[in-house]
């Protein structure tokens, strides 16, 4: 078939469309590559969280930004890679303040689901308890920065009608935060605000007036990651 490439994932022969990212191609072949910052609803994958790190012909690379090529040899589930993914998720837990019992997103949170997947009982790294603010100023949203994992989904996806950024990455390093435009936050339509809250994998971007709306046991990640 034209435009089709053949490659292997953990020794299994796979086929996919040329130009597909490894994450997409793997999923098309029934293989799940763990991801966090990647979302099929957001264009321009950025390779920020690195939890999709795989071995591509022997070298480490993020599966969400690298594209499959003919004859590529990809390894996803090696012990070393799995432990690295686990460590990355643990690092996210200590980097912010993730008080799951007090979070509206608990049970529907992608970070939590990833941690459940890896059966993380306690992170190997010491907690940092950073001081982060809560932004109530947007008309429809509350931003709980303690829970932000800087995946940049909102930065990439949410734009005004004339294409301006609504969210942007401020500062750098451990001080990095994702902030909302003060002007647009006051005027943005409810639909756009809902979209922002939906795209957020964790409990950082919350739609005002919503929360704890389903009992434990019926939420997205209660039964499986």
């Amino acid at each position: 078939m034209p435009g089709q490439v053949t490659f292997t994932i953990d020794g299994k022969e796979c086929k996919a469309q040329e130009g597909q990212t490894i994450v997409e191609a793997a999923r098309a072949n029934g293989i799940y590559v763990p991801t966090l910052c990647y979302s099929k609803y957001v264009e321009n994958p950025v390779g920020a969280c690195r939890s999709c790190t795989v071995k591509i012909n022997g070298n480490n690379g993020a599966a969400c930004i690298n594209r499959v090529q003919e004859g590529m040899n990809i390894q996803v589930y090696t012990r070393q890679l799995e432990d690295m993914r686990k460590a990355i998720i643990e690092a996210l837990f200590v980097e912010g303040n993730h008080f799951c019992p007090a979070c509206e997103k608990s049970g529907d949170c992608e970070l939590q689901a990833a941690a459940y997947r890896y059966r993380i009982m306690a992170p190997r790294f010491p907690y940092r308890f950073p001081s982060r603010h809560i932004d109530f100023s947007p008309k429809h949203l509350v931003l709980e920065h303690s829970r932000c994992i800087l995946c940049q989904r909102c930065v990439r996806k949410i734009r005004t009608e004339d294409g301006k950024k609504v969210f942007a990455y401020h500062h750098r390093g451990a001080k990095g935060t994702v902030e909302i435009d003060p002007e647009i936050a006051r005027t943005m339509p409810e639909e756009l605000a809902r979209e922002a809250a939906d795209i957020c994998p964790v409990g950082c971007i919350n739609f005002k007036g919503k929360g704890f709306d389903r009992p434990i046991g019926t939420r997205k990640y209660d039964k499986e990651p």
Partner: peptide, 22 residues
């Protein structure tokens, strides 16, 4: 490095301060 990390990816952003603390 902890100061100069751009902060985009987790290992560098979260990892270097962890190394520094340790």
């Amino acid at each position: 490095f902890a100061e100069e990390s751009c902060g985009a990816c987790v290992p560098c952003r979260a990892g270097n301060p962890i190394l520094s603390d340790l």
